[in-house]
Design a protein around this nucleic acid. Structure first.
Lengths: 231, 231
DNA sequence: TGATAAATTTTGGTATACCAAAAATCGTTG
DNA sequence: CAACGATTTTTGGTATACCAAAATTTATCA
């Protein structure tokens, strides 16, 4: 394997650890320790950390250990606002530029989500969800857009995963995906834009609930800035 | 001085060289040579190159020398589409969130552009232009948006600079800036969105003209993919 | 005992050495 | 002489050594 460079592989490994919670938000990432753990030197590890920093998953502080990002609700909301604009643009462009094969692939991902929507394993379901959104961005035939959109997907991955794991609004999400697919196939630009905007809107609502719930749970705890650190 | 880290300083130096054309598009950037030239080692130089790569100013190729980016018209058009969406969002959010001081600052930048619009030095004018657009993104009070928007500003800097240096459409640009300022002060979301979209639209038109002109000039030359390399 | 300062350790930043893969050069051969 | 191939050189990738700034610990003093 390894069609990728070493720093990318390391970044992938770290990313998985972060997104699955093995590296909790706020944890400091020591170059030496993590490098030794993977049997590499500090140089590629440093580069990997920069890759994750660019994605917003870790925060770089000059002359201090990088830490796993722990976004506040405000930051997540800000990210989602950008993400919404990027995905609406993706949807519009996809209406104009997507090939039949690309639309089929998007529809297939939606079908797969419907299939496994009853399963317990929320990771499979969620990864298909992310692939669905990514496929729309790629169907825009605008590589810069797809890349920037992908960065926001990565940045929001963990929070959205935690939110999706609550399974609270899965039915609505599936329905909205269906509408988006329908609109894409009809090449109805405005309809797709509206549906995507609404979809992201509901993602934000669910995430807000997650934060509120967590805030409520730690009632008497330190009322610091409201991050998702201690679940 | 040096409130910044060494790699950032190096990146700034390289960025200036690229944007001002001292490092022509297509030029390969040797780590050793450029590092020695600035009296630093390869390590911070490598990091600086990655910073510029993230901005899209240089292209990284595994196991090969990085090269100064030489975007095609298609790529610039794609970038501008993203940029437009980001700036429209910035404008909308600025209408809701900008403080009076921020609006004053935006207006002041516009005034400065009007003042120096007759001067020969197009660099001053252009940098004020970029500051104007940046200020709107910052007035959105969405740091993620401002950062991503800033990355696209950097990416498009050189092409827009070359285009603006033609001074073809300076009057229209100034007028549109005025309209944007007016809309922001009136907090008229839809009006601002329309004006920004139209403004970016015209930026694209001017850039297209630049490419066409360059294509025409090298009539019998190799009809490779149409990049801005040899002016 | 609590606070503060000195000493020690940890850790990121930088320089450098070494390696392997490209690229360029040069020689050979049909 | 052109084309191919071996050899040398260049250059990015990785490991490691060294340094300085933080962070931590420990010792000292009020």
């Amino acid at each position: 394997m390894s069609t990728h460079t070493l720093p990318e592989q390391i970044a992938n490994s770290l990313r998985r650890d972060i997104l699955l919670g093995k590296l909790a938000p706020g944890t400091s990432i020591k170059e030496r320790d993590n490098a030794a753990e993977l049997g590499v030197s500090r140089t590629p590890m440093r580069e990997a950390i920069r890759i994750l920093a660019k994605e917003g998953l870790v925060i770089l502080r000059p002359s201090r250990s990088p830490v796993v990002a722990d976004p506040s609700l405000k930051e997540v909301t800000d990210d989602l606002a950008v993400m919404s604009a990027l995905e609406v643009l993706s949807g519009k462009l996809a209406c104009a530029n997507a090939t039949a094969e690309e639309l089929d692939r998007i529809a297939a991902l939606q079908d797969k989500m419907l299939e496994i929507s009853g399963d317990a394993n929320s990771l499979d379901f969620f990864e298909t969800d992310m692939a669905f959104h990514r496929a729309i961005a790629e169907a825009s035939h605008n590589p810069a857009l797809a890349e920037t959109h992908g960065a926001y997907i990565a940045r929001l991955w963990r929070t959205r995963y935690l939110s999706a794991s609550q399974r609270s609004d899965r039915a609505r999400a599936l329905h909205q995906h269906g509408e988006i697919v329908r609109g894409l196939k009809a090449r109805d630009t405005e309809f797709v834009a509206r549906e995507i905007e609404s979809h992201v809107q509901h993602i934000l609502i669910n995430i807000s609930d997650l934060f509120e719930e967590r805030d409520a749970r730690r009632a008497g705890r330190i009322p610091d800035s409201t991050n998702i650190s201690d679940i």
